[in-house]
Amino acid sequence: MRRWLLVLSTIGLAALLLVPFMPSLVYDIFVMKALCFVLFACAFNLLLGHTGILSFGHAAFFGTGAYVTGQLVKEYGVPTDLGILAGGLVAALLGAVIGALAIRRSGIYLAMITLAMSQLVYFFFLQAPFTGAEDGLQRIPRGVFLGIIDLRNDTALYYVVLAIIGAGLWVIWRTVNSPFGHVLRAIREHEPRAVSLGYPVARYKVMVFTISAGLSGIAGSLKAIIFQLAALSDVHWHTSGDVILMTLLGGMNTIFGPAVGAAIISTLGHYLDPFGGWVTVITGVVFMTCILVFRRGVLGQIEQRFQHRSEPSTSTEVHAEPDTSNSPNGA
């Protein structure tokens, strides 16, 4: 399993590095967009998969990153690198605030609160004087990265984006595999026990909210630089829904499953574009199928298959079956 994963990720990485040299095969702007969603989905999954918190308002952080970076770079002439950093920081701050409010409730209420809060952020960007309302922030200059790399060159931009996304994913990987990450999983598995062990659970939740929001903000900032546009759709609840779908589809109990989900959904969106309005319907159907029959997600399913092969005596399927004893059906 481990060896296969290594081989596959090496091939994947090589393919990603070669993208700008194969313009006839793939469109590099599309790959960059997909990469932004890879980081966004993996950051989102710090909450859903690793802490067991469903945030239904992550577009707020993604969009805030995009708008803050866009505004700073376009209107105040801030260097692109600092602009992206600021986008991440402001999103992280917003994450801390929304997180601190949302964790006052749990489960389904928390999801509704984050959704409502993100709607508040949406209205802010709709009405604020500098955001251009329905038009969004247009013609954001790409500028120069670290004073030497000219981002108007698509290839240069591509490698910068790849490097930043890579760094972001590394932060997520480190977070999940740190003592901090273990406490998060303890909270997910049994919150009262984590409390009784003396962990300041609320503080941990706010911290993971902040990290997740900050990285989502950076993903949004990058998207604003790539497309030179920060739009209302970045803060819209549809985007919050998309990132949940990506995460579920890829596998929320894995670290990089959401990346797979993001790649699949971005590709679907890209190639289904000619079908116009049907994209939403198809997304909905994929979402439904995912929830009804495919809750582990793509990577989760693969992982399970491998585990199955290595230890055929214990079936992991049994544990996964829903506990129907206390269902409303009473059956």
């Binding site: 469903l54 239904f56 489960g107 389904i108 999801a111 829904g241 949940i244 779908l245 579920l248 116009g276 309005g277 049907w278 994209v279 939403t280 319907v281 997304t283 909905g284 159907v285 979402f287 439904m288 929830i291 009804l292 809750r295 829903p322 506990d323 129907t324 004893s325 206390n326 269902s327 409303p328 059906n329």
Partner: peptide, 26 residues
């Protein structure tokens, strides 16, 4: 989905929104 985490119910009904809204928009 009964007996599973209630977030799955929220998400399934959300996916129905996408299907219905998208369909009517088309």
């Amino acid at each position: 989905l009964y007996g599973l985490d209630p977030i799955y119910g929220l998400l399934l009904t959300f996916s129905l929104v996408l299907v219905l809204e998208g369909g009517f928009r088309v």
